[in-house]
């Protein structure tokens, strides 16, 4: 091997070794337990299929991921559209505002929601002061709180890819559409929207996959009856129930990989979010 060809290997080598020792090995060892503990078997997974707790948690996780993805798409697309139409200065300021929560820790943002939604939180106190309610509403530790907080936290992941694609659309295209008789809505629906689909799909996938594995926010603002998959895994690890935790982890990983795989295979979605280079 020439020096030039071996250089890249040498450069990434240390990181590869680190990852293998402290990430790949523990993860694989953990995953292996799902089929080897207590003895080589698939019984753990068979058990999972009939496990009411697991099915409830998996359902909650999927439902939350869907609601959060739909919420961020619905709220994020218009913001991305506005961003793409602003003058440079206004766009920069708006982008900073969008990114601000990005630079704040998820923990801090989740606590902020606790302050807002608590029994004696800002919302309840305000409603009481206005004499709209007598007793505080139960807002914290509900699915509503989880959905709200996660939508807020994950919004930038939806806005950024959409805005980036929208900004690459040649401004003469909607203009040409108008010149050919398309109404503003017609130009958007027939030209801008289809051309922005790659961004919307990328954002959707990103938010959905992140939602599936979300832990801190549901743990802090969610209710005890609405556990998400990652919470259940943590709980089982605490109970030292390793085979069960491993099975759950494999399920989460598989769901994520199936989604990523689908984006590589489905026509139209390909190219929208392609792993690797073009």
């Amino acid at each position: 091997m020439t020096q030039a060809a071996s250089a890249p290997v040498l450069l990434v080598g240390p990181l590869l070794l680190f990852m293998a020792a402290f990430y790949a090995f523990p993860v694989l060892a953990m995953l292996a337990r799902s089929v080897t503990d207590p003895h080589p078997t698939l019984a753990n997974f068979a058990h999972l299929a009939g496990d009411g707790v697991f099915l409830h948690v998996f359902g909650t996780t999927l439902r939350t991921a869907f609601i959060v993805t739909a919420g961020t798409l619905f709220l994020g697309y218009p913001v991305a559209l506005a961003l793409s139409r602003m003058r440079p200065t206004a766009a920069t300021i708006t982008l900073v505002i969008v990114l601000l929560p990005f630079w704040t820790s998820v923990l801090v943002r989740s606590y902020a929601w606790m302050v807002l939604l608590g029994r004696r939180g800002l919302i309840n106190e305000a409603l009481r002061a206005l004499d709209l309610i007598d007793a505080p509403l139960r807002l914290l530790n509900t699915p509503l709180a989880v959905n709200l907080a996660m939508i807020h936290i994950l919004l930038p992941y939806m806005i950024l890819p959409i805005a980036s694609v929208l900004r690459q659309i040649d401004p003469s295209l909607p203009r040409a559409a108008a010149g050919m008789g398309a109404t503003p809505w017609g130009a958007f629906r027939q030209v801008v929207l289809p051309l922005s689909m790659p961004g919307a799909l990328a954002g959707t996938l990103l938010v959905f996959v992140l939602s599936l594995g979300f832990y801190i926010t549901p743990a802090l603002v969610g209710g005890p009856r609405d556990l998400m998959l990652s919470q259940l895994i943590a709980q089982q690890v605490d109970l030292l129930n390793w085979p069960y935790a491993a099975c759950l982890s494999v399920t989460l990983l598989a769901a994520t990989l199936v989604l990523l795989g689908a984006t590589q295979v489905l026509p139209g979605v390909r190219g929208a979010f392609r792993l690797g280079t073009r």
Binding site: S172, L173, R175, A176, G179, G181, A182, T183, G186, L195
Partner: peptide, 15 residues
């Protein structure tokens, strides 16, 4: 969109 004018752009602006 109500002027009914044909237009050819410098960069063609094909969709």
């Amino acid at each position: 969109h109500r002027r009914n004018i044909g237009m050819v752009f410098q960069n063609y602006a094909l969709f």
